[in-house]
Simulated scan of single mutants.
Amino acid sequence: MILLRRVIGDALRARRLRQQRTLREVSTAANVSLGYLSEIERGHKEASSELLAAICDALGAQLSDVLREASDTLALAEQVNQVLTPTPDGGLTDGDVTVQVHREGPLKTTLRATRNGRPTPPAPRQPEPLGV
């Protein structure tokens, strides 16, 4: 089950990291303790709407944009849950392909897929177009 507080926390942390800002900078600007902001980002605490608005303001983001991003993530998770069923080892399967998800943080997730018990080869990388 996906938790809304975790999805919102991931969205806030990703925005902060894209701006290359520290927890201390954002917590000071939002007038929230550093530890509490960290717990919100990790999805351990659920922030009030007033606190979310203050954090978004400190990040220069619209609250509606953060909530829209969270909504899109939840919608995608619901679609996946309708197609895939959980496996005993924590993965998901559609009966033929099993996917293991390993989250290493808000910006790094590893997926490992197996088909009929054999690992599927990684997709070939497409060359990136050269800038003109």
Rank of each mutant, 00 (worst) to 15 (best):
G90L: 10
R5A: 02
A47Y: 15
E46N: 01
A61W: 09
G90W: 15
V83Y: 09
V97K: 05
G95Y: 04
V97L: 04
R5W: 12
R103T: 11
L130K: 05
L4F: 05
Y36T: 00
A14R: 05
D10G: 02
S48R: 14
D65W: 13
P119C: 02
P127N: 01
N31Y: 10
R125I: 12
R21H: 10
R125G: 09
G9S: 05
G60K: 04
L51T: 15
Q82F: 07
T93N: 04
A53N: 14
R115Q: 08
E25V: 03
K45W: 01
P119G: 01
R18A: 15
G131V: 05
R115P: 08
R15L: 04
G90S: 03
N81S: 15
Q79T: 10
V132W: 11
Q62Y: 12
G60L: 09
P119M: 03
L76P: 05
D89P: 01
Q82P: 09
G90E: 11
R16L: 03
L34I: 00
S49P: 09
K108E: 07
A70Q: 03
E46F: 02
G9T: 07
R16G: 10
T85L: 11
K45R: 14
L111H: 13
G95Q: 03
A75N: 06
P86K: 10
R42L: 01
T120K: 11
P106A: 01
N81L: 13
S33D: 09
T120A: 04
E39D: 06
R42M: 02
L37R: 03
Q100E: 09
I40N: 01
R42N: 04
E78H: 15
R24P: 01
D57A: 14
E41P: 09
G9E: 07
D72K: 12
S49N: 09
A11W: 05
E39H: 06
D89I: 00
L3C: 03
A70K: 15
G90M: 08
S48G: 11
L76T: 12
Q82H: 12
V66I: 15
R24H: 02
A70L: 13
Y36K: 00
S71Y: 15
P86L: 05
A54N: 15
E69F: 12
A123F: 13
L76A: 13
Q79W: 09
P121A: 08
Q82A: 11
S38W: 06
I8W: 07
L52S: 08
E50F: 06
R6E: 02
E128T: 13
I8E: 04
V32H: 01
P129L: 07
Q100P: 00
M1C: 00
R6K: 08
A29C: 00
S49V: 14
T109Y: 06
H44N: 10
R15D: 13
P121Q: 08
D94N: 14
L52V: 10
G90I: 13
A14W: 00
T22E: 02
L74I: 14
V26H: 11
L34Q: 03
A29Q: 09
T109D: 00
V66S: 10
L76R: 07
N116S: 13
L63W: 00
D57K: 08
Q82W: 07
S71Q: 12
G91P: 14
E50H: 15
V83T: 12
R112G: 10
